[in-house]
């Protein structure tokens, strides 16, 4: 038996990994982009969206939750996977009510960006048009469940912050993002705009009020660049600076900085 070298290949390219790392973590360190929505490097894997599905020995595995094993031959870029990921993205689109043209997150939305990257032209499946209520009870944050993809990022972010603000509730087609307050309303919870949970939403389900359209549509992150090349970045909003122009000034140039492909964090520190 040869000595373990902790290497896998992704589309033929050798990639090293630390024991215990997932395929996604190994890929991220090697700057290989695997499309994903529910994965975030700061939080434990969820494995629910399945957009990050890769192929290993003919088997389909969720790369965000599957541990890398020495000698694994991972396929990430092939027609087969692109079709599968596009179908999953289409399923996500018909599952909720995603009206991109009127959504504040349009252009900064990861679901939309993945749709672009996978060349999704239409919804393909039967639109389900669920009826879900907007929660506008909080003065600074709005929750629009129509756009929620149940990725559980806000749940995990909030757990990590020790606040436990969100949970996924219900079952099957009736699953929903539940706010952990007695009334079930955001306004009665202890959420604040500076919570990671309020900022992490990859789509437009959790929106911060008062910053709508401060970057015009057409000038947003994914309006000109593919998520495959810039990763998951979107403007961070710091409420200590409420001046809109100042905010614009600060956030604007950050886009041009090199960005870690998966985290969306700027590589030169914060």
């Amino acid at each position: 038996m040869t000595q373990s070298s902790n290497k896998i290949t992704i589309d033929g390219r050798a990639v090293c990994f630390q024991p215990g790392q997932t395929i996604m973590e190994a890929a991220t360190e090697a700057s290989v982009y695997i499309p994903h929505l529910c994965h975030h490097p700061d939080y434990p894997p969820h494995g629910s969206c399945k957009v990050c599905t890769v192929k290993v020995d003919g088997r389909y595995l969720a790369s965000c939750s599957e541990k890398a094993v020495d000698g694994m031959e991972v396929q990430n870029n092939c027609k087969d996977l692109k079709d599968l990921r596009r179908s999953i993205t289409q399923l996500l689109f018909v599952d909720g009510n995603h009206y991109c043209p009127s959504c504040e997150r349009s252009g900064n939305c990861q679901l939309q960006a993945i749709g672009y990257a996978l060349e999704m032209q239409e919804n393909h499946y039967t639109q389900l048009f669920p009826t879900r209520k907007v929660d506008a009870s909080h003065p600074d944050i709005i929750l629009d469940p129509d756009r929620c993809i149940l990725c559980g990022l806000c749940v995990r972010a909030s757990e990590a912050e020790g606040k436990n603000l969100f949970k996924i509730g219900g079952r099957g087609q009736n699953s929903y993002l539940s706010v952990c307050s007695d009334s079930g309303l955001l306004g009665d919870s202890s959420i604040s705009v500076n919570d990671k949970a309020a900022q992490i939403c990859p789509v437009g389900a959790i929106l911060i009020r008062g910053e709508g359209f401060h970057i015009p549509i057409g000038e947003r992150l994914y309006d000109h660049q593919q998520i495959t090349s810039v990763g998951n970045c979107r403007p961070r909003y710091n409420h200590s600076t409420s001046n809109l122009t100042e905010r614009k000034k600060r956030e604007g140039p950050e886009h041009s900085k090199p960005i870690n492909l998966t985290t969306g964090k700027h590589t030169n520190g914060k």
Partner: peptide, 21 residues
């Protein structure tokens, strides 16, 4: 199956409903 899917992963949550329709 559509009634009993837990709703956690996309393929099953939405797929079961599509099959049902």
């Amino acid at each position: 199956f559509a009634h009993e899917s837990c709703g956690f992963c996309t393929p099953c949550r939405v797929g079961c409903k599509q099959l049902d329709l």
